[in-house]
Design a binder for these strands. Structure first.
Lengths: 189, 189
DNA sequence: TAAATAAACTAACAATTGTTAGTTATAGGT
DNA sequence: ACCTATAACTAACAATTGTTAGTTTATTTA
């Protein structure tokens, strides 16, 4: 892996602060202090505070979209697709715990990228719902409102970032399969 | 029901704004504008912005604590206790959609009340975990890590506020039972 | 109607915000 | 040793922040 640029380092540290206090409560002086420099120096590397948020959120949202497209095009059955979605969330959340906090809590502070983000999210949820509906149609999944099922599963997965860092000794494979058991067995007929 | 005081009205409107943009991003001028008055006038009714947040969060947190204590002292079996917890979350979340957003996202901006809030939350989670462990011991519930189960159920319930307002025609009884089916049947042996 | 209370107002404050301009120090390649 | 690019610095800005002081208006009570 290539070395992290200064810009990437700033964005990484910013995401950490954003997770703790939220985008709006973190000042450029906070961020600079955490980097050991002065606030003005940040602007040698980034264009604006807003840009940092855009970068954090959009790159993650695109990673989720990409993952979903891959899962969708796989010829697995519905339950296996759900398991893959769970793995996707566990993987991306554990790789970027801090970014996930911004994605969940600070997306409304996007500006130019807001519309684009919202489209990605809606498309993701549509794809998710489609998988559930297929599963209901084929009899793999119990026939309860797909919206409620999606909500239940997706909010659990979206909140993984809160919880992953608390389990230091966490085995990600094991977490995925435990989650699959809990989330899916309740769905599986 | 007695008429809402001006103070209560301010807090209700504040919670709505806090849900949309988060505590830190909402200014007292925003809040005043939403109330149709000037920012300074707010201070005839409230002591500080901080106080508003304290009020919103602590009253809700105490309602959850109270609910949990009631459930705990009931002599129901474990599955029934879980169903009651689900009903508690559906009830409080639907009664106070906006407050739930602050509870979830802005608790870290509490000041004097922060420690107290954290104690309430930890106690609540401990009680929740105890119920699951009882259920495992008595064979009502599958024997997987209670922490993961609790996380999965609790994050779903804690996120209800995001989702409830989207379903206008929502029947709360029906939602509770659908959620029970989804969340519990996966746990029930 | 007079007095008292509640709730709004204007004006201003000190602190903090994101950001810019202009300058200096550091380090690597020639 | 010199040059160049990188990355830090100081100083300052205009705007916005929560909040206070003092005053006026509106409503209720006696």
């Amino acid at each position: 892996m290539k070395k992290e640029t200064r810009r990437e380092e700033i964005i990484r540290v910013a995401a950490k602060l954003f997770k703790e206090k939220g985008f709006s409560a973190v000042t450029m002086r906070d961020l600079a202090a955490e980097m050991g420099i002065k606030a003005a120096s940040l602007y040698n590397h980034i264009n604006s505070k807003q840009d940092i948020l855009n970068d954090i959120i959009i790159s993650l949202a695109e990673a989720f979209t990409e993952g979903m497209k891959l899962i969708q095009s796989s010829n697995k059955n519905c339950i296996d697709k759900l398991k893959q979605i769970i793995e996707l969330h566990v993987k991306l959340s554990s790789q970027n715990v801090y970014g996930m906090a911004s994605l969940n809590n600070d997306w409304m502070h996007l500006d130019e990228k807001l519309k684009y983000y919202q489209k990605l999210r809606i498309d993701y949820e549509d794809d998710f719902r489609s998988i559930l509906k297929e599963g209901i149609a084929s009899g793999e999944i119990i026939n309860v409102k797909p919206d409620v099922m999606m909500f239940s599963i997706l909010t659990t997965l979206r909140s993984l970032y809160i919880w992953i860092p608390k389990k230091e000794e966490l085995n990600l494979k094991e977490l995925s399969s435990t989650l699959s058991q809990i989330l899916i067995t309740g769905i599986n007929k």
